[in-house]
Structures are given as structure tokens and as C-alpha cells.
């Protein structure tokens, strides 16, 4: 055992224990750690935006080859003057905080929403609808080297699972017709497919959450307490 002498590691370890104290009950240690977390994270993201986004995307192109005053006094002297438009729109975004003029933030919001909508129509259609449908249109009988052997049977069965599994699950979500007769059977099968799928998601979620705990315990054990 070789307990760390770094103050940063100790702070990290103490904060870890403060957050875990929530498992006992909500208390002031947890709330303090939570407040520090939110404050520092937001501050870090702001600083990151300042250096890597504003400076790189806005300030450096605007001031390239000129001075601060050059930008202020003669903004149109450079080809980058177009950047004043998004800068202005960005500032309008901040008006959201002021009730009287809050409506102005709709302009930049409209820009972001419009761009997102234009992009989503195309990429969703191309890769989530067409490509996925294409991958679902599988042969319902598959041969292996011209014969229907065990390998071909397995492939055929798997194709059926994909094709009918997807169709049944879609049928369950299809509310335009009443779920009666064949549709009802299909929809019921659809629920089963979805349930198995959700079960798989649950299993995977357990795995994910435990991994996070393992990461933390490892920090306490190896970095803080120095037990390797």
C-alpha cells in the first residue's frame, strides 16, 4: 500500500466519497460536491468554447492581418466580414434572457433549427430509412453452394428473424388499422421481438453502469490508496 501524497488525488478521493454519501441519504456533502461539479463543468465548457470555438472560428479569422481597432473601425475591409452576421445572430441568442426582447432569439434559433431540419431530412432518409430497408430485404430462402444444407438453414432462419421480426415490430407501432386477425398476431409477435430487444438493452445497461463503478473503485484502490 502506497497512499498518494498528491493533493489533487486526495481532493478527487474525498469528492468521490462525498458523492457516494448520497447512497446513505441526501446530505450537505453531496450537495456541495454537486454544486462544485455543475459550476466547474459549466466553467470549463465556457473556457473551452472561448479558446477553441470563438477564438478559432470568429476572432482569429476576423483579426487576421489586422489589429483589434482595424476590425472595429473598418469591418468590411476583409473578406471575413461575413462573420459579423453570425456574431450578431449569436448575440441575439442571448436576448432570450431578457423577457421584453426575448423574441429576437428566435432568429438564431430558426437558423439552427432550419439547418438541422434540412440536414436531417436527407441523412435520415439516406442512411436510416433506405439503407436500413435495403438491409432488411433479405432472401427468404438461402442456399449454400447450391444446396439447402444446415448452413443454409441457419442463414435462412436468421434472415426470417430479421425480416419478420422487423415487420412485426413495425406492425405493433402501426395504429392506422385495428389490431385484429393477422395484424393482431403480427403485432403480438412484434411485442415479443421488442421485449427481447429491451431485455438486451437492460443487460447492456447493467454492464455499462457497473463499468463506471469499476472505474471509480479502481481510482480509489490504485491511485489513491496505491494498492496495485
Amino acid at each position: 500500500m502506497n497512499i498518494s501524497s498528491e493533493i489533487g488525488v486526495w481532493i478527487g478521493a474525498v469528492l468521490t466519497l462525498c458523492i457516494w454519501s448520497f447512497l446513505w441519504k441526501d446530505n450537505f456533502l453531496y450537495k456541495t460536491a454537486e454544486a462544485i461539479f455543475i459550476g466547474c463543468s459549466a466553467g470549463y465548457i465556457f473556457s473551452k468554447l472561448f479558446h477553441e470555438s470563438f477564438m478559432a472560428v470568429l476572432w482569429n479569422p476576423l483579426t487576421e492581418g489586422t489589429t483589434f481597432w482595424g476590425v472595429i473601425t473598418n469591418p468590411l475591409s476583409k473578406g471575413n466580414a461575413f462573420l459579423f452576421i453570425p456574431f450578431f445572430l449569436g448575440l441575439l441568442m442571448i436576448t432570450r434572457l431578457f423577457p421584453g426582447i426575448g423574441w429576437m432569439s428566435r432568429w438564431p434559433m430558426a437558423f439552427i433549427v432550419g439547418l438541422g431540419a434540412g440536414m436531417n431530412i436527407f441523412i435520415s432518409l439516406q442512411s436510416s430509412v433506405v439503407a436500413q430497408l435495403h438491409a432488411t430485404m433479405l432472401p427468404l430462402v438461402k442456399f449454400h453452394g447450391g444446396v439447402f444444407d444446415m448452413t443454409a438453414f441457419v442463414d435462412t432462419f436468421n434472415n426470417w428473424v430479421i425480416v419478420f421480426g422487423t415487420l412485426c415490430a413495425l406492425m405493433y407501432f402501426f395504429f392506422s388499422i385495428e389490431h385484429k386477425g393477422l395484424v393482431s398476431v403480427g403485432a403480438r409477435m412484434g411485442i415479443y421481438v421488442l421485449m427481447i430487444s429491451f431485455g438486451a438493452s437492460f443487460g447492456a445497461t447493467v454492464m455499462a453502469r457497473i463499468s463506471l463503478l469499476i472505474g471509480r473503485v479502481r481510482f480509489l484502490k490504485e491511485v489513491w490508496l496505491g494498492i496495485v
Partner: peptide
């Protein structure tokens, strides 16, 4: 991906994307 997101990404793996 994190294990949580894996099930919803598998259709893309299956389709070869």
C-alpha cells in the same frame, strides 16, 4: 460505444454501414 448505446447501434452493424 458505451454498452447502453450498443443495442441501438447494432442495426447499422448488421446492415454493413
Amino acid at each position: 460505444v458505451t454498452a447502453v448505446t450498443a443495442p441501438e447501434i447494432t442495426p447499422y452493424l448488421n446492415s454493413g454501414q
